[in-house]
Design a binder for these strands. Structure first.
Length: 576
DNA sequence: GCCGTTTTCGGCCCGACTGTTTTCAGTCG
């Protein structure tokens, strides 16, 4: 975790603790806002502090606490609160139906500071004696505990994407349904999601038909406008789905509201108030009179804002941009003219060139880079030099009759000393060289390896630069600023790896790299035919990083792309 | 604890739902 993430976590914990202790709710909110702001900063917080730069949402006091953290590695107030409140309390408060007040009661009366103790107290019947607890509340907490156990993990968005689309399609097919949209973090394309929010506009009551879906394993709530249930994913894990029934005239405002983020919504409502309106999920109102709400577009328009694409609604300054009509035209799926990372049978993929061509044709691509692994990466079928040469000949032959140009490429391993896994004479014959690191020793800092590798004039793209995996692996240790700086100087492209397990660079790093003037490529890392579809994730991620068509090289036509690569290589050779 | 060109004090997003109440508190999103 970097400073921003650690501080965000500390501030969240302080907020939880203050809430538990019954502190001023607005102070609690201030800590949560600050945590959110920190998580969304493209640069390390120390950079802003050093520049003495004001950050909206972080005032005098929190700024001092941040400085305290940067100097000492901790925050006194945080330490004090932690010593006052048992660790288990923080977990207890994550259980549905248990908020700070309930947690406090449980702790004060029964010393509940762990899930185990909570279970005992729930079974004992003693809770009924306490003012504020009734039979139903106790039942709800039991239910919440079950839910918590089942659902405490988040999902990588790509892991659940198709299941959710399938559910959406099912809902759309129900007679009388006019509109269905998945909102929430799914629509914002957060890299992980906890639950699914679906909005439905329908002429008649369809709750019975919704609940007929065979993958619904348990109904949590069923009201007139809201249905919640547990839904079994194709990997057999369970995810909570909340469905809301929306009236047509509120469709847009509800979509905005349920898309969030929460922090974005708060800022939007603030802005509405500033302009003399009230904004809620039912619409935009002036003196209780409905002004707009049928579509998102009309709400934004009435607020005199540019339309804000869902992916960037994260309270990271997008509202300011929208006020000034400065949101760039973000890249779209249709802009993509080819995939720049695909593995064939020659290394660890399963596709032959015909299969790759077939998938590419479906997507209207002009080209696909065949980026098989290099010799050192034995676990992934890395190709010996002779095999690579043979494969290249095969590709050339194939291209003579192919309707999609296969780029002769490779994902070349950056070795421990920063040298590349093939000699330059081989690299220069490739249309496109991706360089990447797969083998990293524990706690190794790979900055120097990257910097050394980037001295090679044939390195066109650094693939999955940080090495992180969405759910399961932290980024490798490296100085991103040094790497971005060098990439920018040497016109080296950074990849946005679209595989849902990677999503690397992530949105924040994209924002940061863009400030260095870096160009990006989007590659799916497809190893089989289904893998091609992940290009959508790459595009959404690029949008979340505010990228336009011009920032991404695989929006270029084949000839443009080839001459771009050539120009960059010549630039590197002449200049350095 | 943050913020501000009506304000440096006094506000702070807003509504649904539920449960335990008898007019409201807590939780959630």
């Amino acid at each position: 975790m970097n400073n921003n993430q650690i501080l965000a976590k500390i501030f969240e914990e302080i907020a939880d603790a203050l809430e538990f202790l019954g502190d001023n709710p607005f102070r609690v909110r201030a800590y949560r806002t600050a945590a959110n702001v920190l998580e969304g900063l493209p640069e390390d917080i120390s950079v802003y502090i050093n520049r003495n730069e004001k950050i909206y949402g972080i005032g005098e006091e929190l700024r001092e606490k941040i400085i305290e953290f940067l100097n000492t590695g901790k925050i006194k107030k945080h330490e004090e609160l932690l010593s006052k409140i048992p660790r288990g309390i923080f977990e207890i408060m994550k259980i549905p139906y248990i908020g700070p007040k309930t947690a406090k009661l449980l702790y004060d009366y029964f010393n509940v500071d762990s899930i185990e103790k909570l279970k005992k107290v729930l079974e004992s019947g003693q809770l009924l004696k306490i003012r504020g607890f009734g039979i139903k509340k106790i039942e709800n907490i039991k239910k919440g505990l079950e839910l918590y156990k089942k659902l405490s993990e988040r999902f990588a968005i790509g892991e659940v994407y198709q299941d959710i689309i399938n559910l959406k399609n099912y809902l759309s097919s129900i007679e009388g349904v006019e509109k269905v949209e998945v909102a929430g973090s799914f629509r914002r394309f957060k890299e992980t999601i906890g639950d699914v929010d679906i909005l439905i506009c329908s002429k008649r009551d369809i709750s019975e038909e919704i609940l007929k879906h065979p993958r619904i394993v348990e109904v949590i709530n069923k009201g007139e406008t809201k249905i919640s249930f547990l839904y079994e994913l194709s990997n057999h894990r369970l995810i909570q789905v909340d469905i809301r029934i929306i009236e047509e005239k509120s469709w847009g405002s509800a979509l905005m509201y349920f898309t969030g983020s929460k922090e974005h919504n708060i800022l939007m409502r603030d802005l509405a108030i500033e302009k003399g309106y009230k904004l809620n999920e039912y619409g935009l109102f002036k003196d209780e009179i409905y002004i707009a709400g049928k579509t998102e577009e009309e709400v934004f328009e009435k607020l005199n804002l540019q339309y804000i694409p869902p992916e960037i609604r994260e309270a990271r300054g997008e509202i300011e941009l929208a006020k000034n009509f400065k949101i760039p035209k973000l890249i779209e799926l249709e802009d993509i003219k080819g995939d720049l990372q695909v593995h064939s049978k020659y290394s660890d993929g399963v596709m032959d060139f015909w299969e790759i061509e077939a998938e590419a044709l479906k997507l209207n691509y002009e080209y696909v880079a065949i980026t098989d692994h290099s010799k050192s990466l034995k676990v992934a079928g890395g190709m010996e030099t002779e095999d690579l040469i043979r494969r290249n000949e095969e590709i050339k032959k194939f291209n003579k009759s192919s309707r999609v140009k296969l780029l002769i490429s490779a994902e070349v391993e950056i070795l421990n000393d920063g040298s590349l896994d093939y000699p330059d004479e081989i690299l220069k014959e490739l249309d496109l060289v991706l360089a990447s690191i797969h083998n990293v020793k524990k706690d190794e800092d790979i900055t120097e390896r990257y910097l050394k590798a980037m001295d090679n004039p044939y390195v066109d793209i650094i693939a999955h630069p940080t090495g992180r995996l969405v759910i399961s692996r932290e980024p490798y240790k490296m100085d991103l600023d040094k790497i971005f700086k060098k990439a920018s100087e040497r016109k080296i492209v950074l990849e946005i790896n679209a595989h849902y397990n990677r999503l690397d660079l992530n949105d924040l790093n994209i924002l940061k790299a863009k400030q260095y003037g870096i160009k990006f490529s989007i590659g799916t890392d497809a190893h089989n035919r289904a893998g091609f579809s992940m290009i959508l994730f790459g595009v959404k991620l690029a949008r979340k990083g505010l990228l336009t068509k011009d920032d991404v090289i695989n929006t270029l036509s084949l000839n443009e792309l080839l001459s771009y690569i050539k120009l960059c290589r010549e630039y590197r050779k002449s200049k350095f």
